[in-house]
Computed example of a mutant assay.
Amino acid sequence: MAQQTGGDARSRFHRLGSLFANRYGRSAGTETSSLEVDVVDTVQDMRKAQWNGIVERSSRGSVFHRYEWLEAIETGLGYTPRHLVVSKDGNTIGGMPNFVVEIEKTPFDRLSSLYPGFGGPLLPTDTADSLEHVVEAIPQLCHGSTIVHQIRGLDMSYLRYNDALQSHGYRPYRRECRFLLDLTRDYDEILADMSRTRRRGIERGRGVDYEIVEEEITRENLRRFYRTYERVMDRVGGEVYPRSFFEALQSMDDRLLLLTIRIDGEYAGGMLEVLDDEHDTVHGFFAAIPREYFDDHASELLYDHVFQWGIEHGYERYDFGSTNANFEDGVFRFKEGFGGRPVPVLVWERGCSPLWPLVKAGRSLYWPYYV
């Protein structure tokens, strides 16, 4: 649908219509109010302050729901937005961000809330009716090569939606977990709960000539980090985000922590953390440590530093990010060694095409333990 120019930004939305109307009692009588759902094709058609206000009012709102993160995905990764916005009497009261993302090893796409990061519905008011509107609108967003909708909840509080989602055809999908480290404890207690291997790595690392610096979020510093990140990800065969995504993150520099480690005066890698002030959590999102600094225990030193940084700045948790829920996986074992608590990544999927069952069956061939 062609977008109009000029006028209120809502005129540029794709109206799905007033799918539900109800009467709400008022002290001065009874009036008719309705909820409406619109599709937003670009985050720039949303009012930044208004949307971030909804994020901050919702107990499930996180840094990944914020306008700046959505904008970085849209402009830096080029993913197609299909955000749903719920309004009541002309006022935005909630919504659910979505992007069209490729399904790996297939020619098909999924509609994801949210990737990268975690998403799901933000419905601080009129929750039941708003959720009904949002899930009923989803099939209208899935067409062509987009064959499934996926919701990736940030934390266990999203279980409150499980029954409602399953009643609309969503099915739980468990393939990943995250390790959460409690930063409200004393540092010595955190250190004592680590595995012997992780503690020994920190102790040995402290014996080298090293320095860890909190860098400004400048284009030059991000580019230096990106060069190392790209080299590391190429070596391990991981997904490499484009440099444009990192540059787009500059607009949310107050929610980023960029750490650099120097060993014997030489740049030895770093970590780019995402600060979730809504949930008092530091998210470990990107790490880039060249192999030549493994024996110097650069990784352990960086993690140890960010734990202490989080404690000093009043954060309650450190989130190591998603990993395969497989105890034989090296990344799983590495993160587990720091003493974090494993929690599942809550994912629900809803097929939107007759092709989805075939793709789902094919997925089990290369992820045999997860259907």
Rank of each mutant, 00 (worst) to 15 (best):
D319A: 02
L259W: 06
V135G: 12
T92E: 13
A9S: 09
E203R: 15
F245L: 13
S33V: 14
E189R: 11
G265V: 03
V135W: 04
V39P: 05
Y67C: 09
P139T: 01
T184A: 15
E214F: 12
Y229V: 09
R317F: 03
S18P: 06
R196L: 08
D329V: 09
G201S: 12
E328H: 13
L19A: 13
A72Q: 01
S195E: 09
I54H: 02
A72H: 01
Y115V: 12
R291M: 06
M194P: 08
A248Y: 02
F246T: 02
I73E: 06
I93K: 02
F118Q: 09
G61Q: 05
R198I: 06
S299G: 07
W348Y: 11
G321F: 02
A2D: 13
F245C: 05
M271E: 02
L346A: 06
R175F: 01
Y366W: 15
N221V: 01
H143Q: 14
Q44T: 10
E220P: 07
C352K: 07
I263E: 04
G238A: 12
A28Y: 08
V371L: 11
L35K: 10
R198Q: 13
Y303A: 02
V213H: 09
G17S: 07
M271G: 06
S11Y: 06
F338Y: 12
D188P: 12
R160Q: 15
G117N: 12
L222K: 08
A72T: 02
G337S: 11
T106N: 07
R341Y: 05
G6P: 07
Q308R: 15
D296V: 01
T106I: 07
I263Q: 05
G284Y: 00
W356K: 04
Y170G: 00
F338R: 00
L35C: 07
T184H: 13
L154A: 11
Y315V: 03
G238W: 12
G169D: 06
G351S: 05
F20E: 05
W309I: 06
D186S: 12
R185E: 02
W367K: 14
E71N: 14
S251A: 15
S18L: 06
W309K: 12
V37I: 04
D319F: 06
L180H: 11
Q150V: 07
D319T: 01
L257I: 08
I263Y: 04
T80I: 10
E300H: 04
G17V: 08
T184Q: 15
P290G: 01
